[in-house]
């Protein structure tokens, strides 16, 4: 019997494709945001609200990941912006190779911002890097304060948390201070915005974050 040392990441191939994607995104000068959340926390609604503010001043594209349907892609297509649909056929997360195919349908070089809406799931998408510049996690106030502690991998890898559906706060039992404390416990650098797609709370601040990051990124790429 002989022991052969391997010491390799099981997702090595995914990480390699993602690194290539990242290079393509940087060459095209597009800022890529991977939107993750449980099913129904408001990923598509947030993208819709965001488009109303930043498009067409910024040129935005969207990749919609969905287990079964093209409903979300159809919602986004109404904004007359480039949309690519990925139907994963049951797979619970997006993988870099799926993004590699999807970007062939997008005018990458013309875009300023690209949103990737991941499959609604707080576990699996956290293992798959897609070449994005930022992971943004959405948690709605109906999900309970403890979600950051129950799904720490996802919350710790994200740089922004959108605490969505705050318009519902008067109707439910949810301690938002506690929820923020839990999120910051496992990710002290996390930026948190309270948002509502119903009354537009926080959407402007979130859009400012995007435009700021875009500026910083472009500033860096002209210096570097």
């Amino acid at each position: 019997m002989e022991i052969i040392t391997v010491e390799q990441k099981i997702l090595k191939k995914n990480d390699e494709i993602a690194a290539d994607l990242r290079k393509k995104f940087d060459e095209a000068n597009v800022f890529v945001i991977n939107m993750v959340s449980s099913p129904g926390s408001g990923k598509t609604s947030i993208i819709e609200r965001t488009l109303k503010i930043i498009s067409p001043a910024l040129s935005v594209g969207v990749i919609e990941g969905d287990i079964q349907t093209s409903i979300d892609a159809e919602r986004i297509a109404q904004f007359n912006i480039p949309v690519a649909q990925i139907i994963t056929n049951g797979t619970c997360h997006l993988e870099a190779r799926m993004i590699e195919q999807a970007i062939n349908q997008l005018p990458l070089k013309d875009l300023d911002v690209l949103f990737i809406e991941n499959v609604g799931n707080l576990v699996c998408p956290s293992s798959y890097y897609l070449g994005e510049h930022a992971k943004v996690v959405i948690m709605s106030v109906t999900e309970g304060e403890d979600k950051p502690l129950k799904y720490p991998a996802m919350f710790s890898k994200s740089c922004v948390l959108l605490m969505n559906k705050t318009d519902l706060l008067p109707h439910i039992i949810f301690d938002i201070t506690k929820a923020k404390k839990f999120a910051l416990k496992i990710n002290p650098d996390l930026k948190i915005y309270e948002t509502s797609c119903y009354d537009n709370t926080g959407i402007m601040q979130w859009c400012d974050w995007i435009t700021n990051e875009l500026k910083l990124k472009r500033c860096k790429s002209t210096i570097g």
């Binding site: 002989e2 022991i3 010491e7 390799q8």
Partner: peptide
């Protein structure tokens, strides 16, 4: 998520 080693005959 890593492969450490393999035992081969």
């Amino acid at each position: 998520l890593e492969i450490i080693n393999m035992e081969v005959e």
